[in-house]
Design a protein around this nucleic acid. Structure first.
Lengths: 343, 343
DNA sequence: CTGTTAGCGCCTTCAT
DNA sequence: ATGAAGGCGCTAACAG
């Protein structure tokens, strides 16, 4: 019996449990046993097997193992995209925790998919559970459909029946941030960003409204723009043209705040003198610009880890939680709000 | 003999090919046929099957299919981490192309792994091919070992025997960038960053050296610091303390350049007057700081896509290319080099 | 055109 | 303690 375990050009497939068994002079059942480490195996044979495994560099084929044990030891993660630090950080937290739990992570980015529903269904056939980002353009139907087959957790979205959710706090922090602006004496603060772009933004706007209400003030309607750099620039230009009257801008995220601030400054406006600008996320750029951007830091890494955790427990049979789990955020005060902070 | 493939109504696992077959009153082979769409099936039965598939929401189990066809329809990607826009963009490019090619992507981040070798071996059992980032702390041994089982392509690294590489151009662009600095009259330009942190950086330093040689100048030894924000700040402080004499700093990447520039400016130094600072990558922050950071833009997205492409072709049986494929980069001149650009 | 059947590689009772 | 044998769900010959 010629051994073809040498890395011959075409026999790339590697050793199987059979070749290991033969090599060690035992049955495949024994090989499986020492590898699973569940049943007891006599030390001598155990060593023989281990030696064979080592020599042939054997690793069980994922598909075969999955088929036999009826699960994949993998988690799926569905995110819109990865530009900006938010999603990347979330992914890092998710991946790190998944790694600790010995789960592979297979990633799906919705922005690059034409047939998202198909992609998600596909994903469901290769993982044990799936975490999907709340604002991802996935119809609630798909989520529900998914949930029928695999455990699902929504990140930064609303919990639905049977689908639990994890997120960072928004409303109270937004209320605090908006309050901070108002306490600087600003009386025409505008909320820039579309509350309909997701539960997160929705709640930030709600906090903005609440802060006004707290002080017996009227909150303005939100300026509905997408959370992208280009939209911020466009908005700022409209503002420079006199389309908006405001002495403070509470932006839905830093990307928006940063582009708006830069455009305003380039046109000679003083920030925060003429108009204060604050954001949300605390991206790297926020601490490099002058004035430093006042914003809110979210525990994004932890959020990702939490999602991976919950997925694992759900797979382990734990029942889904009905209430969303919310992680606390932190107000980061720099100078763009009107404060004279260090930076 | 009894078939027990009946999908009990509440079977959480979902429908199997058997339940679909039964539901449609045909054999599993027929179901498989219409789904694979290879062989011809009479239109009537075809419709019956499709209807059953639809009603049961059937999707073939990934593991079973993989086992039968002997491949996974998935690509693996090994990256160090995801902070900063570089890796995230690379991943997006990779994922997008993989999606087009109908390949799932399973991601492994080395920074979060304690046993990297094991993680990579594991990965190899669930994908058809693997792309690993060149500077990832993966010993050449592991790569070679991997290559014996699956096609591998190295991103931004040196091609090894049987392992092809894709990368962005570094040497010539660096030569151009360094030359630009020298042509501004700078005579004590320092290279900041460790050339040993990867082939990319190595070549950037080589370009720096070449530019000097081109002009009959002597190139200084590199200031070996890690490519992280904190290291940049520390370096800048040493420089402010008089440890280095320089009128220009060519930093290995933008993160370094940005933190150095900020620290220098905070201490009252004029950039680019007292000292010019340039980076590499063209991250978002680079265009928001003042002066705008002169840097080099890499086609990161395309690089990721190229890697996915090559993986796919390698899996399809195409032979590996011996020469590395290099994508062109672009010098982005702003003001931190001494030019009086728009920003 | 369609059904039957033999694997794919591994895990897991069930005997021994 | 170890071996034999039956699936896991699906694809792909091979017969009809």
């Amino acid at each position: 019996m010629a051994k073809q375990h040498q890395a011959s050009p075409e026999a790339r497939q590697g050793a199987t449990i059979y070749s290991v068994a033969e090599h060690a002079g035992v049955s495949i059942a024994t090989v499986s046993r020492v590898l699973q480490g569940v049943t007891v195996v006599s030390e001598p044979t155990r060593q023989k097997v281990l030696a064979a495994v080592e020599e042939l560099g054997y690793v069980a084929l994922g598909a075969a193992r999955s088929l036999a044990v009826r699960h994949h030891e993998a988690h799926g993660l569905v995110l819109p995209e990865l530009s900006g630090p938010y999603y990347a950080e979330l992914l890092m937290g998710f991946e790190a925790r998944a790694a600790e739990l010995a789960q592979s992570v297979v990633l799906v980015l919705t922005d690059s998919r034409t047939d998202l529903a198909a992609a998600v269904r596909q994903l469901a056939t290769r993982v044990d559970a799936i975490a999907v980002f709340g604002s991802a353009p996935i119809s609630a139907d798909v989520v529900r459909l998914l949930r029928a087959k695999k455990p699902v957790v929504v990140i930064a979205g609303e919990p639905q029946d049977g689908v639990e959710a994890v997120s960072a706090e928004n409303l109270e922090s937004a209320r605090e941030l908006a309050g901070h602006l108002l306490d600087h004496g600003k009386r025409r603060a505008l909320f820039v960003g579309d509350p309909d772009s997701g539960p997160d933004i929705h709640n930030r706007y709600a906090g903005y409204v609440a802060a006004h209400r707290d002080r017996g003030l009227d909150a303005a309607e939100p300026v509905r723009v997408a959370l992208r750099e280009a939209e911020g620039t466009a908005f700022a230009q409209r503002m420079l043209a006199g389309a908006y009257e405001a002495d403070a801008l509470m932006c839905a995220n830093d990307e928006l705040a940063l582009s708006i601030m830069a455009t305003l400054q380039d046109a000679g406006r003083d920030v925060p003198g003429d108009v204060a600008v604050v954001g949300w996320d605390d991206v790297m750029t926020a601490r490099y610009v002058r004035p430093g951007l006042t914003t809110v830091r979210q525990p994004v890494h932890e959020l990702g880890a939490l999602a991976a955790d919950r997925l694992h427990e759900l797979v382990s049979g734990e029942p889904p939680r009905s209430r969303a789990q919310t992680l606390p955020t932190q107000l980061v005060v720099r100078s763009s709000c009107g404060c004279r902070a260090a930076t």
